[in-house]
Design a protein around this nucleic acid. Sequence first.
DNA 1: TGATAATTTGACCGGTTGGTAAAACATTAC
DNA 2: GTAATGTTTTACCAACCGGTCAAATTATCA
Lengths: 217, 217
Amino acid sequence: MVLPRAAKTQRRTRIQEEKEEQILEAALEVFATHGFRGSTIDQIAEVAGMSKPNLLYYFRTKEAMHRALIDRVLDSWLDPLREFDAEGNPVAEIRSYIRRKLEMARDFPRESRLFANEVLQSAPHILDELRGPLKTLVDEKVEVIRAWAKAGKIAKCDPYHLIFAIWSTTQHYADFDAQVRAVLGEEHSGEGRFEDAARFLEQLFINGLAVHGPASS
Amino acid sequence: MVLPRAAKTQRRTRIQEEKEEQILEAALEVFATHGFRGSTIDQIAEVAGMSKPNLLYYFRTKEAMHRALIDRVLDSWLDPLREFDAEGNPVAEIRSYIRRKLEMARDFPRESRLFANEVLQSAPHILDELRGPLKTLVDEKVEVIRAWAKAGKIAKCDPYHLIFAIWSTTQHYADFDAQVRAVLGEEHSGEGRFEDAARFLEQLFINGLAVHGPASS
DNA sequence: TGATAATTTGACCGGTTGGTAAAACATTAC
DNA sequence: GTAATGTTTTACCAACCGGTCAAATTATCA
């Protein structure tokens, strides 16, 4: 036999697991930095520390690498939203959703940029995932938020745009890191900026969604 | 003579103006969609409706095209922030800044994506502009916001992160349009989504920045 | 009109890119 | 040990890419 990926549902070798892991790690690095079209197999091979044909032994095409990477990363990327709990306290839920998203931007910026590159270029490879699993999950959480607003626990608002706002503000620190650093200057670009961002965003969203009843006091 | 760009400060031909315009329009389309590395001169030539060597007659390299495009677009891109007026009413100023940014995302999404692509890939071609003119302008407006907060006209907050939040939430609708459409579904993806977004964002930022003094009312 | 300069094109070049073929090498199973 | 299988490498290819060149074409203007 010569093609491991053709193996008929056979269990994979230890070497296969290790190498595929190595390759996907390198692919994440490169795809996140240059986008799909801007990345070359040679680049990925160099980062992975192996030859190009060796890479192509494990993934038959550049697209296969990209696909495998997306499949692996997408699920964990949606986890923070999944944890969004209908039973919890609305304010606390929103606050901790922002926290989790911001932590992901800090700890997994490459994953964020991988998707950002895709979506920015019209999502040619992940449109189905966006229209399917992502939309389904969002629709579900939108209903939760809508119920909270109806019950007067948070201000009435368009839940879709609330979710977009949380996504964009938090992922901004991963996707547009270069701009954030340039504007803040090197002196404020330490890890402390994530704490500052968290404080600001919590203030913004918590106050922004607080119920301002007709009778203040 | 053979190279128009070498013309010693001579006034440009009508044809030169027209063709350079045509080329930059096409370059915007292509660069915004595929990023610098992902774009090819042939692509731009095809969109511009002329041959590749003809393009290279007006811009000697792909980088020169990109640079010319950035120079032309950057200035107008910063206009909304420039209009931010220290003398105005804080709430009204912030509200109309959000409006203007959202209108730009709606009316000039390609310009937004051009920069997004650059910044996402570590801003290799515009880092100087970010660290120079952009930072200077932001620093200036940060002082305005800080003064407003000190005067008790808006809530105390980190002005840098406020600006980041406005940038990210508004540009989201241009840069991640594919995702927004996928999540909203085709039925809510009409132009009306910008009105919904404007309503939500104004509510979020105005309430989020309202002063909640110890004595309300 | 004709001379001159500006513009456009087709043919081409060297380097890169995604991907292949086949043989060399390593590992595992018996 | 050895045969079968799994892995890696060297050499290679055709297509594409950024860019050049010289010739052909068109616009300008005396």
